[in-house]
Every structure is written in structure tokens, then in C-alpha cells.
């Protein structure tokens, strides 16, 4: 359905625009990213600053979302928490994506190791992930903390464990795509003129599996944000002086009766972001897959 003279991505954009929910989500996410990235300039209050005289303050002009039990500004903490949560989401997704694409391409292209790689994928799918994540954090937390410092250590740990335990879906999807692309004529043509295997993969196969990878990337971010905040919510994620949305929610629950906004603000931030990311993924899938594009 591509019009004459129109590039592929322009066509995708035209399709994407049809999905109003996805479009609104993209705008919302852009807003969140800008707010979180430019937060220190937009709201120049130090999230770590303890103002004991203003503790447990309600909503006011000075503190739009109030302050916590130590007098730290909640809005500044939500912004700072968003930075960590989004950074964890994106980094963990990148790790999962690289692992998943690697396994998927290798399994789909090289028949000899297909069986072994798919058994490995099945094995990972059979692991109880949440308990295992909790156990891994229990075991390696102190080690990484002493090696990289308390904040960087726990960041590396959480990103790594989420990445290593969520590549399986991507690998399966990519493997399936690669297996059909491998048999297509242009790959045969490339092979017949003596293109090396590595070049066929990087030049002809990878660009063609980009669309499922892109879709699973967006869903991967949502998954990673939820997992990180779940870990923080269970008290096994980031320490409380290093706010993330999950940690703020966990801290806010204790004051739910008197200061509900303390739990609501980070909770809404997580929910709306994940909802927007899921809608974005939905819209991208519709726009990128020509088979369901008949509307």
C-alpha cells in the first residue's frame, strides 16, 4: 500500500497516526521523558534535601505534592524516581533485546545449534522468575555494592537480572521470523553470489526482523519498569535514599491513611507510563506489520 515515492518509514508513520490511542501515548511518553530529563531545571529542588521543619506537609504551592516524613519534597522525589525507573527500563530492555536477538538469529539461521538454543530458551521459560530475581538480589547485592558503590551496584544488579531473565520472548519471535526470511529469494540470491554468512545476517536478515524487535522492545520496557518497581515494592530493590517509583510507592504505603498522595503519585506515574508504553507497542505492531494493516 506504499504510495509512489514514499519511504517505508513515512508509510509506517501514516499507519501509526491512525491509532489514536498510540498517538496520544507517544505524546504522553515524550512528555514524561522530557519532564524527567529536564526535571532539575523545571523543578529545582534537591530530592535529597531534608527540611525537618516542613516535614509531612500537605499539598501547597511550595511543595505541590507535599513532603515526606523527613521533609523531602515529593515532587522532586517523583521526578528523580522517574529517572531511575526509566533508566532501568531502557537499559534492561536493551540487554534483553541484544540477548534475545542474538539467540533468535543464531537459532533461526544456524540449524546445528537451533535445538540446543531452543532447549535453553525453554529452560529459562520454566524458571520461576520473580522468586529467582529475589534470590539473585539477595545473593549478589552485597558483593556488587562493595564493588561499585551502593547505588551503581544495585543498578547494575537489577538491570542485569531483569535483562537476563526476559529475553526469551524476543528470541522466539526473532527465530520464527529468521526461519521464514532465510528461505526467501533475496537471501538465496545473496548466498549465490558468495556473500559471507555474517554479512547475510547483518545486511539482509537483521533489517528484516527489525519490526518485531521494535515491538518487543516497547513491551520489554513496560515489563522492566513493572519488575523493577515490584522488586522495590517488596523492599528488595533500591535503597530508600535513592528513590525510584516502586520504592516511593513502598515508602508511601505506610502513610496511606493520612497522606494518600504519597503513594498515589508514584503509583499513577508507573501505571500511566506502562499503559502508554503498552499502547505504543500495540500501535507499532499494527503499523509495522503489513498483514494486519488492511483497515
Amino acid at each position: 500500500m506504499t504510495r509512489a515515492g514514499e519511504s517505508y518509514w513515512l508509510d509506517v508513520w501514516r499507519q501509526f497516526k491512525v491509532h489514536k490511542g498510540a498517538l496520544a501515548s507517544a505524546a504522553f511518553l515524550t512528555g514524561v521523558i522530557v519532564a524527567v530529563a529536564a526535571g532539575p531545571w523545571l523543578w529545582p529542588v534537591d530530592p535529597q534535601f531534608i527540611d525537618v521543619r516542613a516535614r509531612n506537609a500537605g499539598m501547597s504551592l511550595e511543595h505541590p505534592l507535599g513532603t515526606d516524613q523527613l521533609g523531602r519534597d515529593t515532587l522532586a522525589r517523583v521526578i528523580a524516581g522517574g529517572r531511575t525507573s526509566l533508566a532501568v527500563g531502557v537499559t534492561a530492555m536493551a540487554i534483553a533485546l541484544v540477548l534475545g536477538t542474538l539467540v533468535g538469529v543464531l537459532a533461526g539461521y544456524l540449524r546445528r545449534i537451533d535445538g540446543a538454543l531452543m532447549r535453553l530458551t525453554d529452560l529459562f521459560l520454566a524458571l520461576p522468575l520473580l522468586p529467582l530475581l529475589l534470590v539473585a538480589i539477595l545473593l549478589f547485592r552485597d558483593m556488587l555494592r562493595s564493588a561499585f558503590g551502593p547505588e551503581a551496584g544495585i543498578f547494575i544488579l537489577i538491570v542485569a537480572v531483569i535483562g537476563i531473565t526476559s529475553w526469551m520472548q524476543t528470541a522466539r519471535v526473532v527465530r520464527g521470523e529468521v526461519m521464514t526470511i532465510r528461505e526467501r529469494e533475496f537471501v538465496l540470491a545473496a548466498r549465490s553470489i558468495g556473500t559471507s554468512r555474517r554479512r547475510i545476517i547483518t545486511r539482509h536478515i537483521l533489517p528484516n526482523v527489525m519490526s518485531p524487535v521494535l515491538v518487543s522492545a516497547t513491551l520489554g520496557i513496560a515489563n522492566a519498569i513493572i519488575t523493577e518497581s515490584a522488586l522495590s515494592f517488596l523492599g528488595l530493590g533500591f535503597p530508600s535514599d535513592f528513590p525510584t517509583w516502586g520504592r516511593l510507592l513502598y515508602d508511601g504505603v505506610d502513610y496511606l491513611q493520612r497522606y494518600p498522595e504519597r503513594a498515589m503519585a508514584p503509583g499513577l506515574a508507573i501505571s500511566l507510563t506502562v499503559l502508554a508504553v503498552n499502547y505504543l507497542g500495540d500501535g507499532l505492531r499494527d503499523a509495522l506489520d503489513p498483514r494486519i494493516r488492511t483497515r
Binding site: S229, F233, L249, V253, A263, G267, S271
Partner: peptide
């Protein structure tokens, strides 16, 4: 259903506690 699986269960739980208990 999109909302249902996007909102993490720990937030729906807290929301319900806030409305129906608090």
C-alpha cells in the same frame, strides 16, 4: 483489559485499600 494488565497489582491493591478501607 489494557488497563488491567498495565496497572501493576500492587497499585490496584493499594487503590482498593484506599477507597474501600481508608
Amino acid at each position: 483489559s489494557m488497563v488491567g494488565f498495565s496497572i501493576p497489582t500492587y497499585f490496584t491493591g493499594i487503590l482498593l485499600i484506599l477507597v474501600f478501607s481508608v
